[in-house]
Write a protein that binds this DNA or RNA. Structure first.
Lengths: 377, 377
DNA sequence: CCGCAAGCTGAATCGTTAA
DNA sequence: ATTAACGATTCAGCTTGCG
């Protein structure tokens, strides 16, 4: 029996425990209407993009591009797509808690329809977030700009809801004391993270990277929150939610996807509460945040940092902050505080021990930057 | 006398249309309706989005909206903004040439309305472009992500128009030989570039940086093209157009802005023609038939052609075809057939031997083209 | 075992001209 | 209006296979 329970037949008003951390099979509007109202903290939705592709596209080497031509992405008109969007958005709004927020991802093919419908239904837009792709597909015919990003809309249930969750300080501390911007840089979901089908091809045509969902949840949820995904697909939302100590609810129509997602989520190991202190994803180049040393594996949580004269000792945490006892913050803030100064460059102030001698953590940053340059070359 | 002419005080000019390189004062819809249809190559529009349009906002039933009414009706407001957007977009579409394109810039407050209306009116979206700001305004309350970008929509007049201008090769060359992406990085318009009023404050609230307009025009116009800006404001579009050897037409309602923009544009020094040269790709070069190489004596019947790895050998025939045994046809068809592909560019696939090494026959085509240029000069 | 080359692929609204 | 032919066009990153 899979560790992820499934519900195919919901009772009219199921108890909370029944649908939490499950994947519901069926049409998303019908499934949403069976869930209790005001029961979900955050919704992440990756709806069909309504791509309108005519022929087949070939690369310059004449290989064929494997496009998204699934039936679920086909709509007869903009009006039909709008009606579909209104229906699921309305149903989603009912299950959202008054102070809940919703994330919707899309491309220029659909995101303008989506945003307009959201505004019409009373959702209050908080930000649009740009996912900049490090490795987007090129424009093979040289007819347009390389479509190198997707857009996410982050919105509250209505204009009046002001107490939505936004972990501003945590995001900022892990981002070198700069507030998190609306443009995020992440690679596509490829390699081992990408689920494969029995033929070795991609299981799902549009699987999203876990790093993207991780930043979303770290920004807009708290541990124990409920995250709903009405277009569950390969289950990235569930996998990240479980790893980060959040509950999930997935809805999907395809048994193939449900089975694969359930297996995937069952294999996820939740992080310890301590590790959850707050960890962040990659940030915009070329600035290197201290947190990225941890992400890159160059620095492990729990590592001790010292100033050059070993007068102070700090502890590295998983979220990219450091702490001396209860005093936690960015490498810069903690460095400034212990010295009683306004400011401090943590990169040169803090050192790590290697073979008995101290080396500034700036050396590790240099390593990361070199890697970024190589990647960009 | 200002170097920028105004529509009220025009002297008759022999060839150039009266409205070229002028600023038209008035409501943008009315002004657009007085311009000849299909007369403009590119439109750049930075429409207002604050819903406080004092008089220009009308409901679909033509009733006027009181934008400062305390009884705020969200739906009415969006509907009114949509109606305003439809009105100017429709008028703009009439003056756009069949192969013209339009750029519209906005933020998450209005861009979703704008994009939806564009799709509804038949504009065909080519890209959405993200302007990432190097120095955006912080989020002061710490309740959202720093809004660090704006979105531009680039669209053609309709789906059928395929011959819009896109200077792909030039952009790529300027971008370290990588195709230009949909995310652009520019600073805000500040410092000396920013127009000031008599109090020393900013003249216009949303003056766009010239670098942004320069990339737009370098991407989607050719020298001598006509660029229309229906919300001219501080005149950035006109200033950049003049500098880059493009014509402009501006529309604005405010005399203050018109006067400042006229003065600004008058001070602009156009670049020399030689600096305005556009890098052209092969698709802009005259077509050369393979047979003309034989006629020009650059290739003799009986010459052997090879692919780069010498897996196949073909024989040049006097009629401009090539043959492998009995299999004869154009350089493209034979190249495709031996590879088992649908298509093949014979110019780059086939090579001839010179001094023991292989050179693509494309080199001979370049020679012919060079001769054609000399003959035309 | 490593190092390097070659191959594959990702939410894509992806052509023009002459007969 | 339709068809056929011409011929232009890709970036990053991971995987596979060979020496």
């Amino acid at each position: 029996m899979s560790a992820v329970r499934r519900i195919e037949q919901l009772a009219p008003q199921p108890k909370k425990a029944e649908w939490l951390d499950t994947i519901i099979k069926g049409d998303c509007v019908a499934a949403l209407e069976r869930l209790p109202e005001k029961s979900v903290d955050v919704i992440f939705a990756d709806p069909p993009y309504n791509l309108q592709l005519d022929g087949t596209l070939h690369r310059p080497d004449q290989s064929r591009v494997d496009a998204v031509d699934d039936a679920w992405d086909q709509f007869d008109s903009f009006a039909a797509y709008d009606a579909f969007t209104r229906a699921w958005m309305l149903a989603a709004r009912r299950v959202l808690k008054p102070n809940g927020t919703i994330w919707v991802i899309g491309s220029y093919h659909n995101i303008f329809r989506v945003g307009s419908v959201m505004q019409d239904l009373g959702y209050w837009l908080l930000n649009d977030i740009v996912w900049r792709k490090t490795n987007p597909m090129p424009n093979f015919r040289g007819r347009r700009f390389q479509n190198a990003h997707e857009t996410m809309i982050w919105a509250s249930r209505d204009k009046a809801s002001k107490s939505y969750t936004f972990n501003y300080e945590a995001l900022k501390a892990a981002n070198d004391d700069l507030q998190m911007r609306s443009d995020w840089l992440f690679p596509l979901c490829t390699g081992k993270e990408r689920l494969k089908n029995e033929d070795g091809g991609k299981l799902h045509p549009t699987q999203k990277p876990e790093a993207l969902l991780a930043r979303i949840m770290m920004a807009s949820t708290k541990p124990g929150d409920v995250v709903l995904d009405p277009f569950f697909g390969s289950g990235t939302t569930g996998a990240v939610a479980k790893r980060l100590g959040r509950h999930f609810v997935g809805i999907d129509r395809e048994e193939t996807y449900i089975a694969a997602a359930a297996e995937r989520i069952a294999a996820v190991e939740p992080l310890d509460d301590i590790d959850l202190a707050l960890m962040q994803g990659k940030r915009a180049e070329p600035r290197v945040a201290f947190g990225s040393l941890i992400e890159a594996g160059l620095m492990k949580p729990g590592t001790l940092l010292f100033d050059a004269k070993r007068r102070w000792t700090a502890n590295v945490r998983a979220d990219g902050t450091i702490a001396i006892g209860d005093d936690a913050g960015s490498i810069h803030r903690v460095g400034a505080r212990v010295q009683g100064l306004e400011a401090c460059n943590g990169w040169t102030f803090w050192h790590f021990e290697e073979a008995g001698s101290l080396k500034p953590i700036d050396e590790l940053r240099a390593t990361v930057r070199k890697g970024m340059q190589v990647a960009a070359a």
